[in-house]
Simulated assay, not measured.
Amino acid sequence: MLLVERKKIISDYLKQHHMVDLQTLVTMTGASESTLRRDLDSMEEEGVLVRVHGGAKIKKAPNSVIGDEPRFSEKVASNAQEKRAIAKAAVALIENNQTIYLDAGTSSLLMIDFIDPSMHLNLVTNGVDQAIAASSKGLNIQLLGGTLRANTQAIVGQTAHKQLAKYHFHHVFLGMNGIDIQDGLTTTDEAEAFLKEQAANQSKHVYLLVDQTKFEKTYPINVTLEGKFGVITNTFEDRQLKAKYSELYKIKEVKN
């Protein structure tokens, strides 16, 4: 395979997944690790990526803000294995007879697969897909009323806020579009951000469910969470990146 072909494969993969390890590139290209290291070094000099231990990550422009949000169906299919591992770890934190809030994220949707109906949980969500999946499994779930955002299948608005205000949760599980050292937690929609903040303020324990593609990303709307919260994510390929975020957040890594 020619150098230009390998670089295109690497570039295309990073655009979709934002990080890549050498073993993945070996499988995709058939090239040796030494050859791929030289390719990555060359692409770093070109400003395409940033080298990290064992691979590379996409280069983020200073203060870059991502405006567009993928459709919910696209997010469900993206990094499904990693999200299932995160979802399973999240469910392991729940005990019988608790009141739980699941927001309209893809990892929280996958949590439904791991919840045992015999736990007798009281689930609350603003996610239409979460409500459908839970009810089809025989779980007790309350879907907030309000305005539907088609892109994320999330319920938002004043009706949702009024209904949510009635609850006190043992655990709240939130998705997040971006998590960045400088810019904090961000998402794409102000109404969804407000609902995340409200749910978190009404819970004893708050967890963000984010795979590695969410780190070093910034979206237009800030989400401000008061107090401590945990971050459940898949394994960091870049240990320096983990150390940096661990200074600010309580990180729980799970294997895929």
Rank of each mutant, 00 (worst) to 15 (best):
K7V: 06
K8R: 15
I10A: 07
S11M: 11
S11N: 14
K15P: 00
V20K: 03
M28R: 15
R38L: 11
L49Y: 09
V50G: 01
G54H: 13
K57G: 01
I66S: 03
G67Y: 10
P70G: 07
F72M: 09
E82G: 14
E82L: 13
K83W: 06
I94M: 00
I94F: 00
N96P: 09
N96R: 15
N97A: 10
Q98H: 08
I100W: 01
Y101V: 05
A104V: 08
T106F: 02
F114L: 05
D116P: 09
D116Q: 08
L121S: 03
T125P: 07
T125W: 03
T125M: 05
T125F: 03
V128Q: 02
D129C: 06
G138Q: 08
G145V: 06
G146T: 07
T147I: 15
L148H: 07
R149V: 06
R149G: 01
A150C: 00
G157Y: 09
T159C: 04
A160L: 10
H161S: 14
Q163M: 15
K166Y: 09
F173E: 01
G175L: 08
G175C: 09
Q182H: 14
D183R: 14
G184C: 11
G184E: 04
A193L: 05
L195M: 13
K196F: 05
V206Y: 03
T218L: 00
L225D: 02
F229M: 01
F229C: 01
E237Q: 12
E237R: 13
Q240C: 06
A243Q: 12
Y245H: 04
L248K: 15
L248S: 10
E253S: 08
